[in-house]
Write a protein that binds this DNA or RNA. Structure first.
Ligand SMILES: [Mn+2]
Ligand SMILES: [Mn+2]
Length: 563
DNA sequence: ACCAGTCACCCATAT
DNA sequence: CATGTTGTGG
DNA sequence: ATATGGGTGACTCCACAACAT
């Protein structure tokens, strides 16, 4: 089979094969999420001529749902009109379909607009394309604009969006909005990684059935269209009412709480404090609870505030939430972490972590800018068998890189003996075990360990210089606090010499420790993992003026102190 | 990290 | 005409 | 002086062509 190579034409059947794989998956494993007529359409598509499947596969990788026909020239689709006709029969596309005129006009070149509406746009040649479109839409009806356009160009609209959205969600999961789901195939195929074939649950999906999936897609849509809804108070209030009650399904419940948190933030910013409080109160998001407390405090409702803080301090779902509840409205308590200050002898560098790492290297140390890679790496390598164990319901679609329940409260408990076994193995084997884990799992795609040369070099040095006790302290914190431990780890890994490792959080002038960073520093302190905070002090104005025109001096004078 | 989330930076304000 | 933005494609 | 906290924007794969400015 010919491989996919970047910048070279894909094999003729590449996109078609991808579409076929998706169809085969949903038609065999996810039938209950579709109506009979939807199943008939999917079945018809799976049996359609190659040209039709090839064209649809291409359309799905592109942005939007409306395309000019002239942009659909694909060498692997020999008979374009025939392919369009097949897809139109399945109600998946519609030629010259009536869609909003501005979307159509935007597909045309600016020069084409000027030609097609030469009279109306006379004298506007220097205006922006968007202004031309606005002018046309203001002057003519959508129908009139479409008729004029249709005399010059033809277009194709993907009308099967509802069905396609459902198929995509079941196969790819619900992905980030900035990436088209179908690029997952390309990214996998371009990398050297082998794709992991983990057993995907047969009947169990993330959702019980069609209704739950619909509810989830609806939540996603609402989050995406929040800006629009915010212009219409009635819609927003309806959304608030709809979202009042918790869901039994945890994915739905998380989506509901996230939506409420977003709504609350916007309401608060707009000064609608009463409604904002309502949104925050309905939400189960720790961030929403913090906003709730802050707004109540600002409104002078101190008793309610007190009660909430007492509850959060005891039952807060993250350590950061508990720490917040214990200090608010007071300041952060001073931590135990060692603090070192460097007086800069040059203007503050643009990338302070890179600068600090270089300084450590100048002094003979090994230094990497690693951030949250360290906890991810240690957790992923040392606890791989526990993380990827075939726990029922934890792997539900083919591109999943981590178990579905990773951030659920009982993630650890459901795998307790697996974690214990892995921990015992690590303790018995010592630091070199980390490297053994690398070789054992190398190449299998996952959410925690990037199998790059750079990370391999780091792993070698960690295995040589970091005591297993320290590795496990970090990995265990992740295992017990998966959601919270994904962020806030110090910027740099520094190995000053054999066995002399420390983690360094760099702070530029005016920057400060964030709550998630304080959580990690406390964990490192409690388990005696060497670490410190490095504050870069800005060069004084006088000095900066004096050295204008001098060559950059990268020397930094250090002065240590204890906090 | 299972689906937006992390991080540094800016700036006004509080202590 | 040079530069920036957007979309496509592997 | 330093801490706080609200807010913003870059980044998320990379190369390149077409188009807009
Ligand atoms: Mn950082
Ligand atoms: Mn930092």
């Amino acid at each position: 089979m010919t491989r996919l190579v970047a910048q070279q034409p894909a094999p003729a059947d590449y996109y078609e094969r991808n579409l076929d794989a998706v169809l085969a998956f949903v038609l065999s494993k996810r039938r209950s999420f579709f109506t009979d007529s939807e199943l008939a359409r999917l079945d018809g598509l799976a049996r359609a001529p190659a040209g039709a499947r090839r064209l649809l596969a291409r359309l799905l990788t592109r942005k939007g749902r409306v395309f000019l026909t002239r942009s659909l020239r694909y060498s692997e689709v020999a008979d374009l009109p025939g392919a369009v006709a097949e897809l139109a029969d399945l109600a998946l596309v519609s030629p010259n379909h009536a869609v909003a005129a501005d979307r159509l006009l935007n597909l045309c070149r600016k020069s084409e607009l000027s030609t097609m509406w030469s009279a109306a746009l006379a004298g506007m040649a220097s205006r922006r394309k968007g202004e031309l479109i606005d002018a046309l839409c203001a002057r003519y009806s959508d129908g009139a604009l479409r008729r004029t356009m249709a005399s010059e160009v033809s277009w194709l609209v993907v009308t099967g969006s509802a069905l396609i959205e459902r198929v995509e969600a079941l196969f790819f999961g619900v992905g980030p909005v900035y990436r088209e789901p179908w690029t997952s195939f390309v990214l996998q195929d371009l990398s050297e990684l082998s794709v992991v074939k983990r057993p995907v649950s047969e009947q169990s999906s993330q959702f019980e059935g069609r209704l739950e999936l619909d509810a989830y897609l609806d939540l996603r849509r609402r989050r995406r269209w929040l800006d629009v809804a915010f212009e219409r108070p009635k819609v927003l209030q309806q959304w608030l009412r709809d979202s009042r009650d918790p869901h039994a399904n945890r994915s739905l419940e998380r989506g509901r709480s996230a939506l409420l948190y977003s709504i609350g933030q916007r309401l608060e910013r707009a000064g609608e404090l009463r409604l904002a409080l309502r949104a925050y109160r309905y939400s189960d998001d720790p961030g929403a609870r913090e906003r709730l407390v802050r707004v109540l405090h600002r409104c002078g409702r101190l008793n309610t505030c007190e009660r909430l803080l007492a509850h959060m301090a005891e039952h807060g779902s993250t350590l950061a939430e508990q720490q917040f509840a214990r200090r608010f409205p007071g300041r952060h308590p001073v931590g135990n972490s060692r603090v070192t200050s460097w007086q800069l002898a040059q203007p503050t560098p643009a990338r302070i972590e890179t600068f600090a790492a270089q300084q450590f290297r100048v002094n003979g140390a090994l230094a990497w800018h690693t951030e949250n890679l360290i906890p991810r790496l240690l957790f992923g390598l040392l606890y791989w068998p526990a993380i990827f164990a075939p726990v029922p319901g934890s792997f539900v679609h083919p591109f999943q890189l981590a178990p579905l329940d990773l951030n659920w409260p009982d993630f650890y408990r459901r795998r307790e003996t697996l974690f214990s076994d892995a921990r015992q193995n690590a303790q018995d084997s010592g630091s070199a075990w980390l490297l053994a884990c690398w070789h054992k799992h190398h190449g299998l795609s996952n959410a925690f360990v990037p199998w790059s040369e750079r990370v391999y070099a780091l792993t070698v040095e960690l295995a040589a210089s970091m005591p297993m006790r320290q590795m496990l302290a970090i990995a265990d914190h992740v295992a017990h606090n998966t959601r919270e431990a994904r962020s806030g780890f110090p910027d740099l890994t520094v190995i000053h010499g054999p066995g002399n490792i420390e983690f360094v959080e760099v702070k530029g002038p005016g920057d400060q420790l964030q709550p998630n960073q304080r959580v990690w520093l406390r964990v490192l302190d409690a388990s005696n993992v060497p670490h410190r905070v490095l504050r870069l002090k800005a060069m004084s104005v006088a000095k900066r003026t004096a050295r204008t025109g001098e060559a950059a001096n990268t020397n930094a004078r250090s002065s240590a102190q204890h906090a």
